[in-house]
């Protein structure tokens, strides 16, 4: 894991994406943002990351596109 500024995690439903992200966020060099686009404001995953990793800033779905377009 070099130092990519953005890590995108994909995979089939139930394969363990959120689990992998949770393990990653436990490492000391944690990134500070999390976004899970496409689920609106009722995203359970975003809420879980928010509760379990208070230092990680969860980007609301409505702002995802703006934030991502700034990266490109």
């Amino acid at each position: 894991m070099s130092s990519p500024s953005l890590i995108v995690v994909a995979g089939p439903s139930g394969s363990g994406k959120t689990t992998w992200i949770s393990q990653f966020l436990r490492q000391p060099t944690t990134p500070t943002y999390y976004v899970c686009p496409g689920l609106g404001n009722a995203s359970v995953d975003s809420a879980i990351i928010n509760y379990r990793f208070p230092s990680v800033q969860v980007i609301p779905d409505t702002e995802a596109q703006t934030v991502l377009s700034r990266l490109s």
């Binding site: 894991m1 070099s2 990519p4 500024s5 953005l6 890590i7 995108v8 995690v9 994909a10 995979g11 089939p12 439903s13 394969s15 363990g16 994406k17 959120t18 992998w20 992200i21 999390y34 976004v35 899970c36 686009p37 496409g38 689920l39 995953d45 596109q65 991502l68 990266l71 490109s72």
Partner: peptide
């Protein structure tokens, strides 16, 4: 960034910026 299975991985939104892409597969 977590991509649900419901997103098109070829979407320009997801390919237009520099990133490290991880796939979690069975």
């Amino acid at each position: 960034m977590e991509l649900g299975f419901y997103l098109d991985l070829r979407s320009p939104l997801l390919t237009s910026f520099p990133c490290h892409r991880v796939a979690v597969v069975p």
